[in-house]
Design a binder for these strands. Structure first.
Lengths: 213, 213
DNA sequence: TAGATTGTTAATCGATTAACAATC
DNA sequence: TAGATTGTTAATCGATTAACAATC
């Protein structure tokens, strides 16, 4: 239960989950850590090490049952939990996230979208009507969402996050251009810095290409 | 030049860059590794260690000059390079990326957007007209883009990437739901797995909340 | 049974932190 | 000069890899 698994391992779990899904789709029912390692680019040792953080899912002399392992990892990740989720900020990025992400397959259920811009009120994104940020408190009281996705400018992000914690939000998926510091303990924060990711890539290019200057 | 800096360090550079920008905006001209460590949540040791991978930017007894350090890191990252960039896939996510990201401030210059859907031809995203994927070869010949952003379904991602490499693309910012394996060497790939990020967060929630079952 | 492959312990490697001499 | 803080080396910590006994 509570025994903490390192975040390095956790971050690899979704990747295992994806590859196992792929294998299932290809009708492969059984795989050894060595075969999986070749497909995924991890070492077989690491795969066995990782999986054994959660239990012995394999069988000596046989390997792993693909769909069984897939389901186990899904359970560990919580893909079937359907945590009630709201999205704040229905700009370009917010609307894209709302429509592009398969929340249901990843343990979330999108139940509300909010924006501060009155012009967006009632506009539909997927099958959800955008509501005004003013109605957040009421909505949270009535529906008890657990996860909040922040697609708002960094200036307002911290303050809105603080409020949301008061409204009972337990986790943030944060696309705002800042590092959230939740005021309270036991709040999960996953910061997504797309700009940082792009700059990392640019560093790579910059150090790959011969400088022409 | 070529002396390799670990990716752990590289991935922290954009974060330094952001915080230093923030400090500049607040009119702070000078900072010690200890002060910076408190703001950023790294240890002072790590900050000095990181920066010294690239040179001695500080001064004993004084600390670091904020704007100088900011500019040095910017130069290391290549934020002023303006690498010509194209975006493939003008769906919800593609259009959001095109409009939401400040490419110019991150070493990229978005010069073309492509989609396979004929209905999108000529539609403007920002100030760029969507072109058909069929014209990619021609466009690359004429304009020599270096970076490609992939916002296309995973089924077609690998094949399009292979083609783009033939057209001279040197780096991918990949939002497709797959891990790109570029066929050639010396190609930079930055995979962004938004779904994985969400699942990591869900794992956190799942292991934080008391299971009610 | 013999062969294969796991689960798990031990060895290695790399990254982070601590310490301190150099120096502004 | 004395105080502060870097640059850098050494110590620690954690994560990855290798090895192998257990076992299917």
């Amino acid at each position: 239960m509570g025994s903490t698994v390192s975040t390095s391992v956790i971050k690899r779990l979704p990747r295992y989950y994806r590859f196992l899904q792929e294998l299932m789709n290809n009708g492969i029912t059984r795989i050894s850590s060595r075969e999986l390692s070749e497909k995924m680019g991890f070492t077989a040792s690491q795969i066995r090490q990782d999986l054994n953080c959660f239990g012995g899912f394999g069988q000596q002399g046989y390997g792993y049952n693909v769909s069984e392992l897939h389901d186990e990892i899904g359970k560990i990740l919580g893909v079937d939990k359907g945590y009630k989720t709201i999205l704040i900020g229905a700009g370009n990025l917010g609307r894209a996230i709302a429509t592009h992400i398969n929340f249901d397959a990843r343990g979330c259920k999108l139940i509300g979208i909010f924006d501060i811009n009155p012009q967006l009120l009632g506009v539909k994104v997927g099958n959800i009507e955008i509501m005004h940020t003013d109605s957040l408190a009421r909505f949270c009281k009535d529906n008890s969402p657990v996860v909040a996705i922040l697609c708002i400018p960094k200036a307002s992000a911290q303050q809105i996050a603080d409020n949301l914690v008061k409204f009972g939000i337990k986790a943030f998926w944060n696309f705002s251009h800042c590092d959230l510091k939740p005021t309270y303990n036991d709040i999960i924060v996953e910061n997504v810095h797309l700009g940082d990711s792009l700059m990392t890539m640019v560093y790579g290019v910059n150090n790959l290409l011969p400088n022409k200057e």
